[in-house]
Design a protein around this nucleic acid. Structure first.
Lengths: 103, 103
DNA sequence: GGCACGTGCTAAGTTATGTTTGCACGTGCA
DNA sequence: TGCACGTGCAAACATAACTTAGCACGTGCC
């Protein structure tokens, strides 16, 4: 679903977003099961505030998506899950991405 | 030539290195022809000092390599060229890389 | 009411990254 | 000698990124 006309700026954004250990762990964890913020924070051993920041970045570049759901006992819970993505990193794909760089 | 046992930390380093417009342009330019620092700086329209910093980072993570050569008129010139690399970025490859993260 | 659980936000501090500027040293040649 | 070209390095500044700490608000339940 990639390779076709990748925008250079998006390309950079995706790489920047994934070049963080916390965010990589988030993606890895969510790829095994969707999860809500507080629980994911506990499982990863990081603060909820920190996780939220990282989740927002991941969502901003389209690597994960979220939906607010109500639990049986009425709590509003925000579930996240990974979207399927595939980016190939080679000199060729980079040369192509560079063509549409604006920065 | 990748995929086999990628180290998580290296994974992060490579992504961090490539998440910069200047460095992407460097890789793109070098993938078309090897070049020496001063000339590449002129072609990219950036300062030599800046380019050197970026080249050093690219070389540090093994995306490019350099060799010092003497031109016909005796000048010491440092040539850079891209190394072949291929990194697949998917939820699966990320999940694998995370397993060997130390940071 | 008070506690446990969920959500959201942001100010403030620390740390990392990017960039400029300036200097040093070398060669060939008019 | 002086200029043009190549190299290298580092201090200093500006900017971006990361992280913590603290607050607000909501629900269910003892």
């Amino acid at each position: 679903m990639e390779a076709a006309t990748v925008n250079g700026d998006e390309f950079v954004e995706v790489l920047a977003t994934l070049s963080n250990p916390h965010r990589l762990r988030v993606v890895a964890a969510l790829s095994q099961q969707r999860n809500y913020v507080s629980r994911l924070a506990r499982e990863l051993g990081i603060s909820r505030a920190l996780l939220q920041v990282h989740l927002r970045k991941l969502e901003a570049v389209g690597l994960v998506e979220s939906q607010l759901e109500l639990s049986e006992d009425g709590k509003a819970m925000k579930f996240y899950e990974v979207l399927d993505f595939a980016v190939a990193l080679t000199p060729e794909t980079i040369a192509e991405a560079v063509q549409t760089l604006t920065k």
